[in-house]
Amino acid sequence: MLPAARLGLSLGRLAASLFLSLVFTTLILLIAGAPPIDTFIILFAGGLGSVAKLAQTMSVWIPLVLCSSALLLAFAPGLWNIGIEGQIILGAIFATGFLRPFAEGGSPLILVGALLAGMIGGSLWAYIAGVLKTWGRVHEIFGGLGLNFVALGLTLWLIFGPWRRPGVASMSGTEPLHPSLWLQEFKGLSLNPVSLALALVAIGLVIYLLRSTRWGLSLKAVGQNPDAALLFGLKPNKRILESMLACGALAGLAGALQVVGVYHRLLPAISSNYGYTALLVTMLASFRPQLIPPICFFFALLNVGSIQLPLQLKLDSSLSGVIQGVLVLSVFLVHGLEGRFRLGRKKE
């Protein structure tokens, strides 16, 4: 099949899934007693209505794109890196830890160090999951899930223990960073150019690595057939660890950017579950890199729009999560039905 035709097929599937999830969501809204049309307007207009709103949407888009790019690297050799949540958190912890000695502020160059520290933190966490898999034979889903809980526990312990704010320890996190260590935002907008640039570089880099390098090709080969990869001398275990390291670095970067660019401190919910959302994004994109940015945008839009729901319609903001979940299920359903339909035809 031609690449263009294949992309067309993916887009067709996506459209069918969107339609299906629209139907399901409307049903849910009707059951909940909410006006469906108003709700949809708020959801989409909430993140698009003004430049400020759009900037807000983009600030959610950035970590989603970083994490989805990271996951593409892990998916290439067939890894379900569900531990990405923990890797984001570790990135945030390492970046915060790196910045702690600079409570009085300092040069913006320190931020480069903080971002690198975040990448190391994420890589480290991913590497543990990788070693658990290749050496300890623990499936990466279980290893990653376990490590997510450990990472969350670690954040809480830091926030309420050694890194607590003088006097009070609270869920509102650690002492804010000195303003000289905040990433500069576009004037009046909650969006910073450094994060945006890094996200664009990340997705570009991942596409290049997977498409045009021998390393990327050998990752895919390991994912396709580990036995054959072994026979070809591609060192499957080494490739798995490398892809985990690279994936963790990008996730850690996302975490570090949440600290220095968005919250300016370490929070218990620093990852905002973007790791899990990114898993949904990559599945929805059926691992096609070019679909990642638009899908991330759509998800970011839902996230930002849903903040308005409780204010305007007295609906819970978790509705955006419901829609995202329904969307992913619809994609699988469309995919499954397509397979079923094809098989059915073959049988006749």
Binding site: L217, K220, A221, Q224, N225, D227, A228, A229, L231
Partner: peptide, 11 residues
Amino acid sequence: HGLFPDLSLNE
């Protein structure tokens, strides 16, 4: 066990 089903011959 010997080939990568979805990779091309060139790959």
